[in-house]
Amino acid sequence: MTDVGNSPVFKPGPDAKLGEIVRHAMPWSSRLKLPGASPFEMLAAIFLVLLVLIALFVDFIPGLVSPKLPYGDFSALPEWSLNGLLGTDDIGRSIFSRVLYGARTSMMIVAISTTIALVAGLLLGMLAGYYRGIFERAIDLFANALAAMPSTLVVLAFVAVTGPSVVTIIVVLGIFDIGTYARVAKAGVISQSNRDYVLAARAMGATDGRILLKEILPNLIPALTAVMPTLMAGLIITEGSLSFLGYGIPAPAPSWGGMIASSTDLLSRFPILIVGPVLAIVLTVYAFNTIGDYLAQRLNNRERES
């Protein structure tokens, strides 16, 4: 094996492993703490870290023009400059800037919807798993009702009544993921609540709330984390589809789905202009899926070992 860590110049030969290239090019990648991750999983994690950084700090990129205002010719082809890197759209806005700001839009929706879904799902799942009975039935019914409809349809129903809005999308998508998180949390609580440590805590007179929060909750985190990236990928796809249909993020705010929809009109003449937003959404979903598979695999292995 090449001693990657110490060699000052590392030339990736044709037979160099992708993992070595990643480790050499980005030495800090080892800080991500992903034991046993393949190079692809490493790259996916790095991509997601980058995406979050872009979402947080896109305003501070020097020289990047506003995503909402035209800056050059209409439908200009890509050129070698920061703002022209991916070309301009049909009204002359920088596609590169819109892709980066679109990342902020997507990440914001993912973050808030997931927080809603996680908090509510955890709460409902813990109630259902710990007290069972009527709680469990009511929550199962709720989860079943959510599973019987595509979230896109429900967002559209809301849009029919309240008009397109970011808040509607975030809340409805958040509510739709409650079912999955609740189911995972419930299953976790049920499998944990007969373990010795829980029985011991109960024998020592711990209250239900204390048992749930201090004893059971920490053990639910791995399973919840494992389903999270895949659900997040689903959120990005749904948000993208809605924006593509014209009922997502209202213009002129940048969103990948909306950008793809608007570039379809130009597709016959300037197909290159669609590359930016398509790559952005595909790579993002790919990264989330890959990390989700990795976490699920690790969780599986750990359960088999214990």
Partner: peptide, 13 residues
């Protein structure tokens, strides 16, 4: 794996 990362609206286009 790649196909699963391409949303249907992108495939359509």
């Amino acid at each position: 794996t790649v196909l699963l990362a391409v949303p249907t609206f992108v495939i359509v286009v």
